[in-house]
């Protein structure tokens, strides 16, 4: 009875099932209930995006800043779209062309943004841990939009959301992540989140591109690591290919992109080894014809474009959950 308890909690959920975090820095400390809350809220946001009027005014008066020290198309644009779809003001700052080029420190930059009126700062930075440092020095909420080779929590959440909407609960489901695992914040955040959800996570790539220890290994619950993609794919419910960066070839970690593709590209023949209807995913940006063949990327089991669409809904959910009054 919403009309009678205007300030009460009428969700019928336990009181702990609400969002109280100031920042979202990674997926490793998210509770089960927080994840459920994000996914449920994202479901509602996806419905909003499908309406004749696909925008609401809930966050009017809230300012979101995207602060990117690395280039990005989809993550930055996705957050901007998410903020605008909720009625927030969005300011985009990239390191080139800003005071960052003049040597302003991260802490000073974040404090300046707070003084200007930023309520949330979405931050991408080449150094692992940079958002953690920023979060300690500002009362604005910090969302990690990717830090070095460490974490990319919103990508992992949108990947989980996409998996859920196709295969339901991921408990016991086999998810193979293939590519440059060692340098991938996407792989790391996904592994943490998926393992916490009870999925069977397999990390696959050439030996030079696998980490020494797997995420979760220190808790005795590491995931499987293998160099044999064909074997890994057997029984897979989801296959996620990662972007192969050309710089890895210059660093001598792979002989060539062509050689990499020979062993690790997702093609029709390989995808056929997974379960029938297994999902094919890619966080983008995709090197067409390297990590995934065009044929697989455009096939019925590919949800690559849907990941991008869902990204807006998941980021709307996070902006909404993190902007409620009283938190600041």
């Amino acid at each position: 009875m919403t009309s009678q308890q205007p300030t009460g909690d009428m969700t019928g959920l336990p009181p702990e099932n609400t969002w109280r975090r100031k920042d979202l820095l990674n997926t490793d400390t998210l509770t089960h209930q927080e994840v459920e809350l994000v996914l449920e809220t994202a479901e509602a946001m996806r419905e909003v995006r499908g309406r004749p009027m696909n925008k609401v005014a809930t966050l009017r008066g809230t300012t979101v800043v995207t602060l990117f020290y690395e280039q990005s198309t989809r993550t930055r644009a996705s957050f901007e779209m998410a903020g605008k779809a909720l009625g927030a003001d969005v300011i985009n700052i990239s390191a080139s062309g800003s005071s960052v080029e003049k040597g302003e420190s991260l802490i000073d930059t974040v404090r300046t943004l707070e003084s200007i009126g930023a309520d949330l700062v979405v931050m991408r930075h080449p150094e692992a841990g940079a958002p953690y440092l920023a979060a300690r020095h500002t009362s604005a909420s910090i969302i990690n939009g990717g830090d070095g080779q460490h974490a990319h929590p919103t990508q992992a959440l949108l990947d989980l959301f996409t998996m859920r909407s196709h295969i339901g609960d991921v408990t016991g489901k086999r998810v193979v992540i293939v590519g440059d695992i060692r340098h991938s914040r996407v792989a790391r955040s996904n592994a943490w989140l998926l393992m916490a959800q009870g999925a069977e996570v397999v990390l696959c790539g050439p030996r030079t591109l696998l980490p020494r220890t797997t995420p979760g290994a220190h808790e005795g619950s590491g995931c499987e690591m293998t160099t044999d993609l064909d074997a890994a794919l057997k029984g897979a419910d989801v296959v996620m290919a990662l972007r192969m960066q050309k710089e890895r070839q210059q660093a001598g970690l792979i002989p060539s992109l062509r050689e990499y593709a020979r062993g690790y590209q997702l093609n029709d023949e390989r995808v056929a080894r997974a379960k029938a209807g297994a999902l094919v995913m890619h966080p983008g940006p995709m090197n067409a014809g390297v990590e995934v063949t065009t044929s697989v990327a455009n096939s019925a089991v590919s949800v690559i474009e849907e990941q991008v669409t869902n990204g807006v809904a998941v980021r709307m959910a996070l902006l909404y959950l993190m902007s409620a009054g009283g938190r600041r």
Binding site: P6, T7, D9, T11, L13, T18, W19, R20, L37, E40, T41, E43, A44, M45, R46, E47, T58, G61, A317, Y320, L321, S323, A324, G325, G326, R327
Partner: peptide, 14 residues
């Protein structure tokens, strides 16, 4: 009352 609330009200799909 979104801005007045301590925590965000639950949103469900319409």
């Amino acid at each position: 009352d979104y801005q007045q609330r301590e925590t965000p009200p639950r949103v469900r799909p319409s």
